[in-house]
Amino acid sequence: MLPAFFILIGTHTFGLPFWLAAILGGVATLILLGLAFKKVMVDPMIHHGVLPLVIATIGLAILMKEAVREFYGADAWPFPALWATTDVTLFGAVFAVQSLLILATCIVVVGALQLFLAGTLTGRCMQAAAQNPAVARLLGIRVERMILYTFLINAALVWIAALLVTPIYLAKFTNGEILGLYAFIAALIGGFNQVRGAIVGGLLLGVIDNFCAVYVSSSYRMAVPLLVLIAVILVRPQGLLGRVEERTV
């Protein structure tokens, strides 16, 4: 939600061309949602445990949402599409070009992320810092730096997601909340500890959601993701592609 409004501020308030506003919006996202979020909120809070940090993050999300509503209003704002908004017919089915390109971008980005995490020493150091920060520190891995990289990557992904989906859903202060909830459920269904799990979960959720809306009832479509989530948790708590993690207790 926030990167989309950064871009809109660039185009509306400063009259910048879209491409420049998009780049500057990306930089603002990296600085505010990546660097500043980590330095101002995570670093001081992390010593108090995970739960206070989660609560503080939820608080910050509410603050950001309400701030956008305060300054930009509750209306949905149109957002330029990166690609043509036409349809194509493939194997007798009609697809929106945008949807296909979003899927393709998603696969490329997740593939690149996987490649970075597994194929580079920095990526593996990030995994090590996530799996066991105490041991990572003993080996000389700069854990704080790895955490910062994680937040920067996270901010970059949020920016990409905003560029992809805002033309469809329009820029609205509630975007982060609604899409974030769907994304969270999709990640749980696919497997929280697997990057590709989120894609599988999202795809599955989207297909089931649309089939239900057409063939069952559109009134209950909001309940469908939760029903799928309950079913998956009951049968496979680690998610469809997730790995069971051992924990020392």
Binding site: R124, Q127, Q131, V135, L138, L139, I141, E246, T248
Partner: peptide, 30 residues
């Protein structure tokens, strides 16, 4: 570590989800 001291703590101190080779490689990070 740079001075030439290494520490092997008690308990399990590997990264279970990574390969043996990649675990080994972490010894040279510093």
């Amino acid at each position: 570590i740079g001075e030439g001291i290494c520490y092997v703590p008690q308990g399990r101190n590997i990264f279970p989800e990574l390969s043996v080779l990649h675990n080994l490689e972490f010894g040279g990070v510093a």
